[in-house]
Design a protein around this nucleic acid. Sequence first.
DNA 1: CATCATATTCGGTGTATTCCGAATGTTCTG
DNA 2: CAGAACATTCGGAATACACCGAATATGATG
Lengths: 183, 183
Amino acid sequence: MNQDAEDVDGTDEDAVQQAREEVIQALERSAEVYGLNQSYGRLYGILFFENEPLSLDGLVEESGYAKSTVSTAMQKMNRLHLVHRRSVPGEGKKVFYEAETDFWHVIQKFLQHEVRREIDVMTRALDSAAERLEDADGEQADAYLERVESLRTMYDRSERLLGILTSSSIERLTGLLDRLQRD
Amino acid sequence: MNQDAEDVDGTDEDAVQQAREEVIQALERSAEVYGLNQSYGRLYGILFFENEPLSLDGLVEESGYAKSTVSTAMQKMNRLHLVHRRSVPGEGKKVFYEAETDFWHVIQKFLQHEVRREIDVMTRALDSAAERLEDADGEQADAYLERVESLRTMYDRSERLLGILTSSSIERLTGLLDRLQRD
DNA sequence: CATCATATTCGGTGTATTCCGAATGTTCTG
DNA sequence: CAGAACATTCGGAATACACCGAATATGATG
C-alpha cells in the first residue's frame, strides 16, 4: 500500500483513537466488576489518556455526558480517590481533575475509610451482643455467644491485617510476598 | 429485681433474640458496604446463627422474604461463595444452605474468579491497543503508548500478586505480614 | 458590590433492580 | 408413571438509580 504522508497521518490518527477507545471500553467493564457505573470507567479513562489535568467542561465535551452527570460522578470518584481535584493557577475557581494511576493507593484508601468503618460498626455490634448473651442463660445463648465470639476473633484479625496493609507500600508488600512464595 | 424462673427465661429469650438481631442488622449494613443488597446480609446472618444447614423454606420462614426472593439471593451468594449448598441424607432433593464463615476464603474466590477475569480482559485490551499504537506514528501515539505500557506493567504486577494471594492461607499471609511489620 | 464564569443541586424522566405471587420445572416416591 | 414436594423461572408492581436540563449557589474579578 503506497500512501502519501497525509493519508498515513489520517490512518494513524484513526488507529490511535481506536486504541484509546479500546482501553476505555475495558475500563468501563472493569468499573462494573467493582460495582461502579460504566460511566465512571469512561470518565476515568478519558482522564487517564490526558496528559494534563482536565476541566469539568473538558470532561463533558469528551464524554458526551451532561455537566451535572460529570460533576456528581467526579465527586464520587474523588471520594474513592480514583481521581484528584487540582486547581490550576490563573484559571480562577475552575476545577481540574487528573486520574490516580496507583491502584494500590486507591485500595489502601478504601480499606482505611470504608472497610475501617465497617469493621468498627460490626465490632461494636458484636461487643454489645456478646454482653447481652453473657448475661443471659440457656443453651441458645451459649451457642449464639460462641458464634459471636468467633466472628469477633475474625474481625480482630482483619483489623490487624488492615493496619499492616494500609501502612505498607506496594513495593514492600510485593517484595515480602515474593519471599513468602519462595519459602 | 426478684423474678421467678419463668420470667427470667422469658427475659433471657428476648435478650438473646435481640443480640442476634443486632448482629444481623450489622451484617445487613456490611453487605451494603460491599455492594450487596441488605437482604443478603440478613439471609447470611440467619444462616450464621443456625447450627445446622437450613432449608430454603426455613430461610423463607425466618426472613419473611418470598421464596423466589430467597432462591435467587441464595444462588447469587452461592456463586460468591458466601454460602454453600448442602444436601442432607434422607431429605431427598431438598437443598440446605450453610454460611461460609471464613471470609478470607470468600475473598480468595472473588480474586480468582471475578478479578482474574477482569485482569484478563484488560490485559488483552492493552496488548491490542499497544500493537496498534506501535504501528502508528506521531507524538499522540507515543504518549498513549507510554500510558498503555505503564498500565500494562501495573496489571502484570497485580497478576503476580493475585497468584500469591489466591494460593496462600490466611495464616501464612498474616504470619508473613506480621514479620514484615516488625522489620 | 455587580457581573461573569463556573460548579453544584434539584426536579423530572426513563431505565434497571428488588421483590412478590403465580406458573413452570425437576426430582423423588409410591 | 402419577403425584407430591420441592426449587426455579417468569411477569408485573413498587422502588431505586442514572442521567438530563434548568435553577441555584459559589467564587473570582473588575
